[in-house]
């Protein structure tokens, strides 16, 4: 599990993990709304920079403007998208029926503690969340459609 915080907003903690060969995507998809974390289709993410840029944006919106979605986790998915169309963002960056590589992400207040078991419902193989692993799994054809 990668733990990180944004220097300017260090009252939040961020946790993220990368899973491959996920077997229960279908089941997970029916529960996206109730999960305490965001599930992102990792084939749309090419770098940690891209991921954390969205986290930064989500916290920024929440602090200085307003949340445009239900919570900070879903706000991160919206912030991955260049437009403010929520449905479009979830369709593109959220998990799909056939997603095999899933990036799990949560942003919570520092006062809460994040259990190591948070992502245990995801039945897949956990690999290091690194630039190399993201870059080798990105689907450029998918990303090129985003605008």
């Amino acid at each position: 599990m990668l733990r990180h915080s944004i220097p300017q907003f260090d009252s939040y903690q961020i946790c993220a993990s990368l899973f491959t060969d996920v077997e229960n995507t279908r089941e997970l998809r029916t529960e996206v709304a109730s999960m305490p974390f965001a599930m992102i289709d990792a084939s749309c993410i090419g770098s940690l920079e891209q991921l954390f840029c969205a986290v930064y944006k989500a916290i920024l919106e929440s602090t200085y403007n307003r949340l445009r979605t239900k919570n900070l986790n879903s706000e991160c998915i919206l912030s991955l998208s260049p437009t403010s169309n929520i449905g479009e963002a979830f369709k593109r960056f959220g998990i799909k029926e056939d997603s095999k590589d899933i990036l799990c992400l949560t942003v919570v207040n520092n006062t809460e503690s994040i259990p190591d078991t948070l992502f245990d419902d995801v039945k897949g193989q956990q690999i290091e969340l690194s630039d190399e692993n993201l870059e080798s799994r990105i689907n450029l054809d998918l990303i090129k459609k985003v605008r």
Partner: peptide, 10 residues
């Protein structure tokens, strides 16, 4: 200080 990138990312 980078605004959001984890150290050693790239």
């Amino acid at each position: 200080v980078h605004p959001y990138e984890p150290i050693n990312a790239k």
